[in-house]
Write a protein that binds this DNA or RNA. Sequence first.
DNA 1: CCGCTTTTGTGCACGCTTTCACAAAGGCAT
DNA 2: ATGCCTTTGTGAAAGCGTGCACAAAAGCGG
Lengths: 263, 263
Amino acid sequence: MATGRTHRPATRSRGIPEATVARLPLYLRALTALSERSVPTVSSEELAAAAGVNSAKLRKDFSYLGSYGTRGVGYDVEYLVYQISRELGLTQDWPVVIVGIGNLGAALANYGGFASRGFRVAALIDADPSMTGKPVAGIPVQHTDDLETIIEENGVSIGVIATPAGAAQQVCDRLVAAGVTSILNFAPTVLSVPEGVDVRKVDLSIELQILAFHEQRKAGEEPAGEGAADTAPPAAPPAASVRRRTDGTDSGPDGDVPAVMPA
Amino acid sequence: MATGRTHRPATRSRGIPEATVARLPLYLRALTALSERSVPTVSSEELAAAAGVNSAKLRKDFSYLGSYGTRGVGYDVEYLVYQISRELGLTQDWPVVIVGIGNLGAALANYGGFASRGFRVAALIDADPSMTGKPVAGIPVQHTDDLETIIEENGVSIGVIATPAGAAQQVCDRLVAAGVTSILNFAPTVLSVPEGVDVRKVDLSIELQILAFHEQRKAGEEPAGEGAADTAPPAAPPAASVRRRTDGTDSGPDGDVPAVMPA
DNA sequence: CCGCTTTTGTGCACGCTTTCACAAAGGCAT
DNA sequence: ATGCCTTTGTGAAAGCGTGCACAAAAGCGG
């Protein structure tokens, strides 16, 4: 029953903690905004506020990159922008392919933030033959058959999966086989990949469910009135006579379309 | 310089760790799939594999919900689906509004996974008057002017922001003022909200940047050849003579459109 | 009715993250 | 120059999350 393919063991590459890496883009965005307003320097306090984090955390994060600040003054905005960009690998160009040009895939293709950060949409790929050649966001959609060729010719190492869940693993396998080593997955599935391949997941449904949890919690504690009667246990665990949903509204398997997608 | 509005202090509501809550939707999805195949029971090992986590972790997670398993046998699928659904608050209906019907907003509106999980798109809202009345995913878009009325009349407590970054905070404020207490933010901005309001963020750009970091790391260590010369320091920190990007390709401020959006 | 097998539930230890608190360091005014 | 004020950089401590390893249960066969 072993997965056969392992999951990244939270490597913490080269001393920079994963948690810090995840915040660097946040800092970078705040710094870029300051840079555009020609602000020369920022204190950790100001920048932390702009990024929505604690100032101590920010200073510690930056300390992993080196001592780029000046005591009594703060951080040089331009310099820090450069350093973080370099650390994140944004000083080079990353060709990216998007697989699955449905509603979401198209939206992703149109995303303006791609180019401005060193990412370049090298190709759009879809399995539907009727899509082939059709331009989306100015880029003609190519057929899945050419996936391997596209990856290799463009030296793509980052792939975005926006296909239905059913196709995701298969697409993933092909991407990996062709040389992709980083995947951003919008399909509501757990992808299994060989060691050395990074997968990050974006899932609207999961985010909403987490919000619902907290929402329910809020509603059930503060007011102490209005419904939310958690009583009435559904059925016995060993017996199999439990109705899944209160009503029968169960429109389809769900988990068959990526985070955002109609068909 | 104080933000004035606080961020959620990782409350860990009522004993269930935040990390566990974040995994419950994952388990639920795997369980739903099993349920559809009429599988009566699962062991923690099997379910963990399906959800892509460690079995010990899964068991510990479930232990926070109660003892719903049977030793020597495993977990009753239907029963567990019900329990997790209830815990996440999915046994009730959550009306949701989507603000900002651009490329991404439209994709979200078309998302099929909404209804199947207890979420219902109550309304689509956009600031563009020319959008008003136009049906998207079968729902007519309404104007921002009516935001408050819509929220109140439908008892909406969860809002999705898919506007450009510039409008996000303003929309957020109005949502909160109207009674929304949970927000899913797709705009690349840090939202500040009063205490008691939950915000979750989805940001394509950040995910890609994190991938790029690891990608660069991989490329710079394993092969030990091919470029990746980290030498050539850019400039002095105190002096302000650093060019931000290697080339001048800086198309726009970025951070002005939500995660996915053309205009 | 007993013992064997399976699988859960969890005590415990380890490592990562966050936060505090403060000494070191830089700049500026006098 | 000297001293004061500001802000960084970082030990150290506390808090979480993860995973191991195993005892406690439940079922089953003899």
